[in-house]
């Protein structure tokens, strides 16, 4: 295939500023998500994800301003997620230049929201993000950034999300997230083998070899990571070079 595997830096944003510590050379303002996004696009990132954790009533306005700034200055696609609960939220983000929106808890609480979004904007616009944790031999969906366990089995939920019109799944393994010990290749392969829509893997990236392993073992479509990119522990040009040397199709 000639379709490139995608490398996707993820930026956590609060009140229009990046939250997680960023230690990145050549940044004039490490707290400015647009500046960071621009640097990533220059380095060869294929796509960006912004997760907004703003809780104030000014939320929608700050989010729309952010999306417009990103769309104005960045020439690669991006997804925006966090607190999108109604069609009107999605509509204004689309018209401000967002390529996709990501929904997580809102979809679990109201699965029909996936159908509504897909009908209104097309399934390519709808990413369903899922936080999963392995408990007593099974994988369960967790909500609110992983704080709340549900009784929903992850693989069932992925199937339902796909059937309802999700255009892509972003799967974060909470067991691997933050460990820097590699992606959850077992689960990711199992999910990817039966999935008819693209899968973005998240959680566990610690070094460049983890990405090679991920793509070789699971064949997922994209890999997302945050801190290893923000702290300059992995440089995207180096990562893509290594992937290419390992016969993984990438955009260089």
């Amino acid at each position: 295939t000639c379709l490139a595997k995608r490398i996707v830096p993820c930026l956590d944003v609060k009140d229009g500023r990046t939250v997680k510590g960023v230690n990145f050379v050549a940044l004039r303002d490490a707290g400015d998500p647009v500046e960071l996004a621009y640097q990533y696009s220059q380095q060869g990132a294929d796509e960006l994800v912004f997760l907004d954790i703003t809780a104030t009533h000014e939320r929608r306005k700050t989010l729309v301003d952010l999306v417009k700034s990103v769309a104005t200055q960045i020439n690669i696609p991006f997804t925006i997620g966090g607190g999108i609960n109604e069609i009107a939220d999605a509509d204004i983000l689309l018209n401000s230049g967002a390529d996709k929106i990501s929904i997580n808890s809102a979809a679990v609480r109201s699965p029909a929201f996936i159908d509504e979004l897909a009908r209104a904007f097309g399934k390519q616009f709808v990413v369903v993000a899922i936080d999963t944790k392995f408990i007593d031999g099974k994988n369960f969906v967790h909500l609110n950034g992983g704080r709340i366990k549900t009784d929903i089995e992850t693989e069932h939920w992925i199937r339902e999300a796909e059937n309802r019109g999700a255009g892509e799944i972003l799967l974060t393994s909470m067991d691997h997230d933050g460990t820097k010990g590699g992606f959850d290749n077992g689960l990711l392969k199992k999910v990817n083998d039966t999935l008819g829509i693209p899968l973005i893997a998240s959680g566990g990236a610690g070094n460049v070899e983890h990405f090679v392993d991920l793509f070789h073992k699971t064949n997922v479509d994209a890999a997302l990571a945050a801190s290893v990119f923000h702290y300059g522990e992995i440089l995207i040009p180096d990562l893509k070079q290594l992937l290419k040397e390992n016969n993984i199709e990438v955009r260089i």
Partner: peptide, 15 residues
Amino acid sequence: DEHLKIKIPHTGWNR
């Protein structure tokens, strides 16, 4: 055609 064993939508960077 999903029988071509491809994911739909075709999403991403292609040559």
